[in-house]
Measured scan of single mutants.
Amino acid sequence: KNAAKIVNEALNQGITLFVSDNKLKYKTNRDSIPSELLEEWKQHKQELIDFLTQLES
């Protein structure tokens, strides 16, 4: 999976991924984040940080 797909899947579940101080963060109104999503974010962390940083610049 690529970073764009992961970010879109998160958005579809009401979760916004973003970068703050070079760290991957998220915002959501959900009570909890599915563990498989958290695991996927960890596996692709640097790719996600790079992707989101490019989007914001």
Rank of each mutant, 00 (worst) to 15 (best):
K1P: 08
K1H: 11
K1V: 13
N2Q: 10
N2D: 14
N2F: 08
N2C: 14
N2R: 11
A3N: 02
A3I: 10
A4L: 10
A4V: 06
A4C: 13
A4F: 10
A4R: 09
A4D: 05
K5A: 15
K5F: 12
K5Y: 10
I6L: 11
I6S: 01
I6F: 03
I6W: 03
I6N: 01
I6T: 02
V7E: 01
V7F: 13
V7I: 13
V7L: 06
V7W: 09
V7M: 04
V7S: 02
N8C: 15
N8E: 15
N8I: 13
N8T: 13
E9C: 05
E9W: 06
E9K: 07
E9N: 08
E9T: 07
E9L: 05
E9Y: 06
A10G: 03
A10I: 01
A10H: 01
A10T: 03
A10Q: 01
A10N: 01
A10W: 02
L11V: 06
L11N: 07
N12K: 15
N12A: 15
N12T: 12
N12P: 01
Q13W: 14
Q13Y: 13
Q13K: 10
Q13G: 04
Q13E: 08
Q13N: 09
G14D: 05
G14W: 04
G14L: 03
G14S: 04
G14E: 04
I15F: 08
I15C: 04
I15T: 01
I15V: 07
I15P: 00
I15M: 03
T16L: 14
T16K: 10
T16V: 15
T16Q: 11
L17W: 02
L17K: 01
F18H: 06
F18C: 09
F18P: 01
V19S: 03
V19N: 02
V19P: 02
S20P: 01
S20L: 13
S20D: 15
D21H: 08
D21A: 06
D21E: 12
D21K: 06
N22R: 06
N22W: 05
N22P: 00
N22D: 08
N22E: 07
N22K: 08
K23F: 07
K23A: 09
K23G: 06
L24P: 01
L24V: 05
L24C: 03
L24Q: 00
L24M: 03
K25E: 11
K25N: 09
K25H: 14
K25R: 13
K25T: 07
K25S: 10
K25A: 12
Y26T: 03
Y26H: 05
Y26D: 01
Y26Q: 02
Y26F: 12
Y26S: 03
Y26R: 01
K27S: 10
K27C: 15
K27G: 05
T28D: 03
T28K: 03
T28L: 03
T28F: 04
N29R: 07
N29S: 13
N29Y: 10
N29I: 09
R30G: 10
D31F: 06
D31W: 04
D31R: 09
D31P: 14
D31H: 11
D31V: 11
D31Q: 12
S32Q: 09
S32M: 09
S32K: 10
S32W: 10
S32P: 11
S32C: 12
S32I: 11
I33A: 03
I33F: 07
I33L: 06
I33M: 04
I33W: 03
I33P: 04
I33C: 02
P34G: 04
P34E: 05
P34N: 05
P34Y: 03
P34T: 05
S35E: 13
S35I: 14
S35W: 10
S35Y: 11
E36W: 09
E36D: 11
E36F: 08
E36K: 09
E36M: 08
E36H: 12
L37P: 01
L37M: 14
L37R: 03
L37W: 08
L37Y: 06
L38F: 08
L38S: 04
L38M: 12
L38K: 06
L38C: 10
L38E: 07
L38G: 02
E39D: 10
E39L: 09
E39A: 10
E39W: 08
E39T: 07
E40L: 14
E40W: 05
E40K: 09
E40T: 12
E40H: 07
E40G: 04
E40Y: 09
E40V: 13
W41A: 02
W41F: 09
W41R: 00
W41C: 04
K42V: 13
K42Y: 14
Q43W: 07
Q43M: 14
Q43T: 13
Q43G: 06
Q43A: 14
H44K: 05
H44M: 08
H44L: 05
H44S: 05
H44V: 05
H44E: 02
H44P: 00
H44A: 06
K45T: 15
K45V: 15
Q46K: 09
Q46E: 11
Q46Y: 08
Q46R: 09
E47M: 14
E47A: 12
E47P: 04
L48G: 00
L48E: 00
L48A: 00
L48H: 00
L48P: 00
L48R: 00
L48M: 03
I49F: 05
I49S: 02
I49Q: 03
I49G: 01
I49W: 04
I49L: 07
I49C: 04
D50V: 08
D50M: 08
D50Q: 10
D50N: 10
F51M: 03
F51H: 06
F51C: 02
F51T: 02
L52I: 06
L52C: 02
L52N: 00
L52R: 00
L52W: 01
L52T: 00
L52A: 00
L52G: 00
T53R: 12
T53E: 06
T53W: 06
Q54H: 10
Q54R: 14
Q54I: 10
L55N: 13
L55I: 10
L55V: 13
L55K: 09
L55D: 08
E56G: 15
E56L: 12
E56Y: 08
E56A: 14
S57K: 14
S57H: 13
S57A: 14
S57Y: 04
